[in-house]
Design a protein around this nucleic acid. Structure first.
Lengths: 208, 208
DNA sequence: GATTTTACATACAGACATGTATGTAAATCT
DNA sequence: AGATTTACATACATGTCTGTATGTAAAATC
């Protein structure tokens, strides 16, 4: 077969990854054979095995092609609570707009078994979770200093709570057909979660 | 082969289900062949196919063998918020004590791909979720009537938030090795989630 | 311009899973 | 007590997936 140019090869690689994501999200990771992926991408398994060592390796590439969802650092305006809210808001909005991100996360949360070679992926996920926890703890700490929240609030617990909330929301949002109930008003639910912590002025002055 | 008595047959059936849960939780649903399950249970695939139509059917049996985790109805004492808290508390405690429940939920949340025949299971899960939502909404409504919470609280949104929180907490708690951080103080996080909604007396009287 | 890689396609061998068909001895029914 | 059904074990036929080995024509290198 006619050898492809380097640029062309990069294109087929990208195409394979994109098709893998699509097929994974349709059939589940374990159920999709590399031949299914290859056929979808218009190549043979030879091409897939040229670019990737095996399915797990391809799966990693799928994950890498989709960037991180949550970037608290992007938001510099507003107080700590608002920055938290904006971060979560932004993540869910991106999910709604970006089909690629949606598919990738659906695969990770609903169409993948974290076993064997994939157990490592779960550790990756949890590492990302720990970064979330650290950032959220930081932000709640700030909120405490700025007296935006009940002075008795424990930033560590609050961050863990928000983490659980976010993880569950993401998963439920992605449960397509059945998740529509949650999907309708995620943004409101997020605001509710964050804003319900905010102390009203009259409350802050007169409470206890 | 010597035909077994009805009682004996029921025992082997139970044994197959129990072993299936164990193997599922170790190797993932898609990766386990019915022969693996059979071998673990000390029978052949013949026995498995006698009792179950296929793997999906067996999986349903695994789910059914483990009862429902969350029973708000069991708690009659205390105000609405406390009953909510007790329900969540109880679910997580049961998870910590009951290995069977732990394995079953680990399979459902981490070791299963919701695709094809298993898409129906996800709908089951979401139906259970809707019951959760209904009960939680009810309880928040009560809390509102009893003036335990901010009168501006929207029970519907609050219930959805708690639902997301619970779903994420369950999933994170079950991420064994990596989830230990969350596991240590789930109970405190739950209390934090519920109690942070409770209006303090001085606040309730003087706010706005 | 000859040589060496590259980017695949094709071919091959082995493992494994599934569903069903068939056999069978004992439990259950009548 | 004979007939029937049950609770499996065994055997079979088939499809599928994986990894690797090999072939090849054109890029890339020199």
């Amino acid at each position: 077969m006619a050898r492809k140019t380097k640029a062309e090869a990069a294109l087929t690689r990208d195409r394979i990854v994109a098709c893998a994501r699509q097929v994974f999200s349709r059939d589940g990771v374990t159920n999709t054979s590399l031949e299914h992926v290859a056929k979808e991408a218009g190549v043979t398994r030879g091409a897939v095995y040229w670019h990737f060592r095996n399915k797990a390796d391809l799966f990693m590439a799928v994950r890498q092609q989709t960037g991180i969802l949550l970037r608290f650092g992007d938001f510099k305006t507003g107080d700590a609570l608002r920055r938290l809210e904006c971060g979560l808001h932004d993540a869910l909005s991106r999910l709604a707009e970006d089909k690629q991100a949606r598919e990738t996360y659906e695969v990770m949360l609903w169409k993948c078994e974290y076993v064997g070679e994939f157990a490592g992926v779960r550790n990756d996920l949890m590492a990302a979770g720990n970064r979330f926890l650290a950032e959220a703890t930081e932000l709640y700490g700030e909120a405490l200093k700025e007296k935006l929240v009940d002075p008795a609030l424990d930033p560590r617990l609050a961050a863990r709570e928000t983490f659980c909330f976010y993880a569950g929301m993401l998963k439920l949002w992605l449960a397509d057909d059945s998740g529509l109930a949650v999907r309708d008003d995620v943004l409101k639910v997020i605001s509710h979660h964050i804003e319900s912590r905010r102390l009203k002025k009259t409350v802050r002055q007169k409470a206890v």
